[in-house]
């Protein structure tokens, strides 16, 4: 099967200004920026599940927000199905590829056409549902926003299918309820169902299980996996948890301080990590078996402040194998195997 890239990220940068204190303004100290994403490039094939793994402050969530056009990149571009997402999300596409005529649509219609094809699942199922809407209102709302010209019974069929596909069957049993009557796992299913009614092609799942109990996590992950099988959806799964990523993703991009340091097939990255940061992450992930306790490579200190990114290799201050050269040279990607690359001078 040949893989068609549906998403291409080219040299993405995203910076956020730091609000200066009054005293800093008086002192005219220079404006500072947070380098949330600092030069990220990768492609995602149609129907692929990609894990974006990193600690807080690695920029993984920012990448996801930019992919969906909910934030505008500072530099670089993101192409979704050949169109520039930041133009698309603001309704400023001018020409259409293959004469699909997107560029001729009105601004609002352009925005809606992107939203319909790319959706998001959020981290906190207790926060991402409006507490004053019923489950029905939550799941039918996307259909109303997009005004797909469905008749009442078609809408009901779609909502029912989305809820039942997400394991909330029978749907009638749930749709008159409010979110606070459901458990965390059920709420997260409602969030997924709300994204699915639009039948999107791309789903960005931002830490969808980190707030859930262990016994329910596998459920949601299995659900995402089955959606890929049933609907050929492309999924970007951001997480800090290597183990859940290892369970159901095809490829894995490990991020550190706004940059992808290693990218490759999930199993290969987890079994034979090449970048020292990935190696450390893999070694400290708790293994649910005391017989398999391993030598942990514990990095000292914490992820540096993304306002002042270290010179050379951004990982060098915490790297167990760094040399003087690493302080000076920003490492290029080294190809390890056909699909596996890592940014380290020591490979």
């Amino acid at each position: 099967m040949e893989k068609i890239p549906i998403l291409r990220i080219e040299d993405l940068y995203k910076q956020f200004p730091v609000t200066r204190k009054f005293i800093d303004r008086i002192k005219r100290s220079p404006k500072q920026v947070v380098h949330a994403v600092d030069g990220v490039s990768f492609t995602v094939a149609q129907g692929e599940i990609l894990a974006l793994v990193g600690e807080s402050g690695s920029g993984k969530t920012t990448v996801g927000m930019n992919v969906l056009g909910l934030q505008v990149p500072t530099k670089g571009r993101i192409l979704f199905d050949g169109h520039d997402v930041s133009d698309w999300a603001t309704g400023r596409l001018r020409s259409g590829k293959n004469g699909d005529g997107l560029g001729r649509l009105s601004r609002r219609k352009q925005i809606l056409s992107l939203r319909r094809r790319a959706q998001m699942v959020f981290q906190d199922p207790y926060e991402s549902l409006n507490p004053r809407q019923t489950i029905w209102e939550i799941v039918v709302e996307p259909l109303e926003i997009h005004n797909l010209g469905l008749r009442a019974n078609e809408k009901e069929a779609r909502v029912r299918a989305a809820l039942e596909d997400c394991g909330l069957a029978p749907a009638d049993h749930f749709w008159s309820r409010y979110p606070d009557e459901l458990s965390g796992g059920q709420r997260q299913r409602v969030v997924v169902a709300g994204a699915l009614v639009l039948e999107p092609e791309l789903l960005v799942a931002d830490e969808p299980v980190s707030m859930l109990d262990v016994s329910i996590r596998a459920d949601i992950l299995t659900l995402l996996q089955s959606l890929r099988k049933a609907r050929d959806i492309t999924i970007i799964y951001t997480t800090h948890d290597l183990a859940t990523a290892g369970y159901f993703t095809d490829r894995m991009a490990v991020m550190y301080l706004g940059r992808v340091v290693e990218l490759g097939p999930t199993v290969e990255v987890l079994k034979e990590p090449r970048h020292p940061y990935t190696q450390a992450l893999v070694s400290v992930a708790p293994v649910p078996n005391p017989r398999k306790r391993r030598q942990r490579v514990i990095l000292q200190g914490e992820v540096p402040n993304p306002i002042d990114i270290p010179s050379g290799c951004r990982f060098h201050p915490r790297c167990p194998i760094a040399t003087d050269e690493c302080k000076k040279t920003d490492p290029p990607y080294v190809e390890i195997s056909a699909e596996h690359e890592a940014a380290c001078l020591k490979i």
């Binding site: 909910l70 809606l112 959020f122 926060e127 991402s128 549902l129």
Partner: peptide
């Protein structure tokens, strides 16, 4: 700033 507002935005709500 709450997530359900971000969700509505991601759904394309005006």
């Amino acid at each position: 700033e709450r997530q359900f507002v971000l969700r509505a935005r991601a759904l394309g709500a005006s």
